[in-house]
């Protein structure tokens, strides 16, 4: 069983870190996993994404042409990756920054006001981790506990003071009411 995930947004939204937390969670769940970032001559503020492939066997490939789950933190990412979602896959979108339009009938949409929820929590930078909570619930691919454990191991020592807030963000995302179509 293999699943792949793309987390996308603009630079500064913590897309790569969210991907690292997700990949770590899969590792802690004893899956094989590969994390691969978009990289290039990037400018500050440009779009960023990373792909995480988790598998019970050897990871088959990265840079796949289609994907099971997209987490789109802004409109540009929503537009860019919509067509890459596999039939039956999920578009998990940040409705604070992306319009709630459903043009594909063969996929599931989850719209959550991720940025707004993070702001309400008191730190907009928590949007990436909050999004992971939403993803965990929708995908059932990883548990909240494993993500929490992963957060603990990924946050560097000098950022450990932010762990409680991150865990809270994760939980808010996880408990956000899902509205699949």
């Amino acid at each position: 069983m293999e699943k792949n995930f793309i987390i996308a947004g603009f630079g500064g939204q913590g897309v790569l870190l969210a991907g690292e937390v997700l990949a770590t969670a899969f590792m802690l769940a004893n899956k094989n996993v590969t994390w691969y970032p978009s990289y290039g001559a990037e400018m500050r503020g440009g779009t960023v994404n990373c792909e995480i492939v988790a598998s019970d066997e050897e990871v088959s490939a990265v840079n796949k042409h289609d994907t099971d789950f997209i987490v789109a933190l802004n409109q540009a990412s929503f537009d860019k990756f919509l067509s890459k979602i596999k039939k039956g896959g999920y578009m998990i979108a940040n409705s604070t920054l992306a319009k709630e339009i459903k043009t594909r009938a063969d996929i599931n949409y989850v719209f959550a006001p991720i940025t707004k929820l993070a702001e309400e929590l008191g730190n907009v930078k928590m949007a990436n981790i909050l999004a992971l909570g939403v993803l965990a619930k929708a995908s059932k691919a990883i548990s909240l506990e494993q993500l929490s454990e992963a957060l603990d191991s990924v946050l560097p020592a000098h950022r450990k003071n932010l762990l409680p807030l991150n865990l809270k963000a994760l939980k808010i995302g996880y408990e956000y009411d899902l509205l699949p179509v």
Partner: peptide
Amino acid sequence: DGLLGQMMEP
């Protein structure tokens, strides 16, 4: 190569 250099794995 760049793929191996940039990717993360356990």
